[in-house]
Design a protein around this nucleic acid. Sequence first.
DNA 1: AAGAATTTTGACCAGTTGGAAAAATGTTAG
DNA 2: CTAACATTTTTCCAACTGGTCAAAATTCTT
Lengths: 236, 236
Amino acid sequence: MPPIKVKNAETVLVTKRPDKTATVPATKVRPLTRIQREKQDIILEAALEVFSLHGFRGATIDQIADVAGMSKPNLLYYFPRKEEIHRRLISELLVTWLEPLREMDADGDPFPEIRSYIRRKLEMARDFPRESRLFANEMLQGAPRISEMIEVDLKNLVDEKAKVLLGWMDEGKLARTDPYHLIFSIWATTQHYADFDVQVRAVLGPGRGGEGRFEDAARYLEQLFLHGLTPRKVAV
Amino acid sequence: MPPIKVKNAETVLVTKRPDKTATVPATKVRPLTRIQREKQDIILEAALEVFSLHGFRGATIDQIADVAGMSKPNLLYYFPRKEEIHRRLISELLVTWLEPLREMDADGDPFPEIRSYIRRKLEMARDFPRESRLFANEMLQGAPRISEMIEVDLKNLVDEKAKVLLGWMDEGKLARTDPYHLIFSIWATTQHYADFDVQVRAVLGPGRGGEGRFEDAARYLEQLFLHGLTPRKVAV
DNA sequence: AAGAATTTTGACCAGTTGGAAAAATGTTAG
DNA sequence: CTAACATTTTTCCAACTGGTCAAAATTCTT
């Protein structure tokens, strides 16, 4: 048997060798070097920028390499396939993305909980719009690369939180309504400010389209989810 | 002066000659032939399918031609550039897309009007999901090809309808709140069912993810926009 | 300081992409 | 029926795409 040729690039990528049988024993996985950690971060950051703007198919490795400030082959040394970068990005994203929902506490009271959930989602739309768009892009395309994640992890989490909401409804602390669509409406209204940012800015115009729009949105959404649009005090 | 060579392909496309000065006098625009009308429709339908799934950059002329059941050069005979197809699609879309908002009547009462606006938007999400996704794709990418449309046509319409909402608020018929964000929230919640369809289905699961989801959504949204989530009757 | 390992580069490749040109085929008004 | 026009097919191309590979340059370890 010839000596096994081990190029480091192959040990770096834990997820390498998509179909061929692994020639490198699993134990051989070296810890990442400093440069590897740094460069991977730079690449992921650049990829986020490009993928979130053009979607998977529309993004090119050249563009990503360009934004990352390195040559294409150099980039491919760290992530041997385009899909690898995307996969990493999405799976890291999904964890942090669902964090706010995870924090919704069954032992708390519904309105503080829901209110702070909305706030946090809105903050994420403001601070991480590219992540939101990356996710939206994937959804628009039918989530071909993450169907399993949403069918299992996401579904389980939502099922769990729907039960929490139902519990509150049973206690009479929350209007009886569909908990799933309730969650959808929070997602939709908050992520809208990241995904449709251009539209929001354009419609609000230069005057009201500044950073204040997130505060306005927070105030409005609080009112909507708490009381709806029925007038409470009658005008004098 | 040599005789002006007029290939029909050039008269068909009214929007041809992007930069060069027009060599064909405007009067020379022939009416479309039967075949031209038919084939253009087929192409636009196919393009909608492909663009809405992959975005502008991710879609290829080959794919569109394939779905349309014709060869690429044949397709290019009708729309000499990829962008041309996209432009047509988007501008036709925007008109019908905003129709429901246009119908919101200042002389009506707010709740029937808003209620039926939500219903109509939800029906569009159900019946024309590809159109919704095409639009969403364009927004995600920063609306590079339609910035003018949203900054002028869309903005004007929303400004007008925001005034209508403000009028209702002044009359005490509607809770005083931000009319722009109110409109955004209707867009977001309804279009969500088209744009994030995969997610919605996955989360609802096979049982509740069927066509009934739109009725459930309508009921939920009605409740949300009318009364919010505050419980009205206290549980016995 | 030297040898080993890692990182970067440049040249290259096969497949795809948007599109052009011209020849071949269809359609239709007179 | 036929000339003029409309449509379709065939062939082709240059630029771009994801990705490979060996060699050169750099960094790390001792």
